[in-house]
Each structure stands twice: as structure tokens, then as C-alpha cells.
């Protein structure tokens, strides 16, 4: 999942420079990916202000723990999104345990049923992820509705397979097969993006 940036260092070079303490690299990565990372935070948390706070914390962590990144395990964007999702899910689960499990879950489930952005969200024309996003959108469109649904409930809402089965009424075994088939199909469609 690499991107070509004209007259700029690539993501791997930025991560290497970041590990050497280069501030500019952090802000370059921020300019490139803060939009999609914030979208992910908002999608998981469902709260714009909390999402921005989380985005800030994630980039602070990236800055402070740049040595954690292992380029053998994926691209910098994959690393950033995985870290972002993990922190967002942690925060979401923590909030659920405070507020009562299903209150937040129901909100999240409602959000997960479509991939339409929040009405208040304006896609950034300056974002460089347009082509990649288009390919992912095409790949997602190729999935069946139940496949897409179980994937989003797991990934964005952090529901376990059992919770997904309960929330959707789909049998547990079918949830598993939907997840497996959806990911295999996505990987096949997006193989050329890495």
C-alpha cells in the first residue's frame, strides 16, 4: 500500500527519517494520511471531537515510538491505519464498559451498515488517496451485502464473531465463512495496490 508522491520522499523514507528524529517527516505523514485516519477514528468512535483527540494521540505515539515500525510487516500506511484502528477500538471498548455495552454498539452498528461518510465530512481534494480509495471502494462493492456487513462490524465496530451473529442474526458458522470469503476476495482485488 504505497503511494507515489511527486518530488517527495516516499512513505518508507519518511518512516526511516522519523525514526532518526526528523520532525518534518512526521508532518509529511500527517499531511498525507491524517484525513483517512481521522475518518477511521470517527467511524469507530462516532464522535468528531474524540476522533481528533485520538488522531493527535496516535500521531504522538508514532512520533515517540517510530522505532516500532517494521517495514517487513507492511507499508507505513498499513501501519498507521492498523495502529489507529487498534487505539480507536480500545477507546471504544473502554467507553462501552463505562456506558453499558450495547448503547455504543447499537450506534456503531447503525453506522456500519453503509460506507457513506458522515454528512459533515468533506472529502479533501488535496488527499492523495483518491485512486487507492476508488480501488478499495470497487473491491468492497464486489462483496455481497452480508459479507460487507460482517466485515465492517468486526473491523470498525470491534464486535466479536458472536456479537456479529447476535447483531445480524446470521449463524455463527456463516459469519466465519463470510469473513473469510470477504477478506480473500478483497486481497485478490487489491493485490496490486501493495
Amino acid at each position: 500500500m504505497t503511494l507515489a508522491h511527486k518530488d517527495q520522499r516516499n512513505d518508507y523514507e519518511l518512516m526511516a527519517a522519523l525514526a532518526r528524529g526528523d520532525h518534518d517527516s512526521l508532518f509529511q505523514l500527517y499531511d498525507r494520511y491524517s484525513g483517512v485516519m481521522l475518518a477511521l477514528c470517527r467511524r469507530v468512535l462516532g464522535d468528531a471531537a474524540e476522533a481528533e483527540q485520538l488522531l493527535l494521540d496516535v500521531f504522538t505515539e508514532v512520533w515517540q515510538r517510530a522505532d516500532r515500525y517494521d517495514d517487513g510487516r507492511g507499508s507505513p500506511l498499513t501501519y498507521l491505519l492498523t495502529l489507529c484502528r487498534s487505539r480507536a477500538i480500545d477507546r471504544c471498548r473502554s467507553r462501552r464498559s463505562r456506558q453499558g455495552k450495547w448503547a455504543a454498539h447499537e450506534t456503531a452498528t447503525d453506522n456500519s451498515l453503509g460506507n457513506v461518510p458522515d454528512p459533515g465530512v468533506t472529502p479533501s481534494d488535496g488527499m492523495v488517496l483518491g485512486e487507492q480509495s476508488r480501488l478499495v471502494r470497487q473491491a468492497m462493492d464486489s462483496l455481497t451485502e452480508p459479507q460487507r456487513k460482517v466485515l465492517e462490524l468486526g473491523y470498525f465496530d470491534g464486535l466479536s464473531q458472536r456479537e456479529i451473529a447476535e447483531a445480524t442474526g446470521i449463524p455463527l458458522g456463516t459469519v466465519k465463512s463470510h469473513v473469510r470469503m470477504a477478506l480473500i476476495q478483497l486481497r485478490q482485488k487489491l493485490r496490486n495496490m501493495e
Binding site: L38, T78, L151, I184, L190
Partner: peptide
């Protein structure tokens, strides 16, 4: 393979440009 596939799911979301105060705060922290 599975991790790479799932990590691309957020790209299905429309990007949300953060407010300028997020970057300002990040700069301040750094």
C-alpha cells in the same frame, strides 16, 4: 495476507480533514 486486506478497509471511508488545531497541538507536543 488477511491483515493486509483488512488494513485497507479504512480507505473505503471518505477522508475527513482534521481541524488545524490538531496539527498545531501535534507540533506543540513534538
Amino acid at each position: 495476507e488477511a491483515m493486509l486486506a483488512s488494513a485497507q478497509l479504512p480507505l473505503n471511508l471518505a477522508p475527513c480533514p482534521p481541524s488545524s488545531k490538531v496539527k498545531d497541538e501535534l507540533m506543540r507536543r513534538v
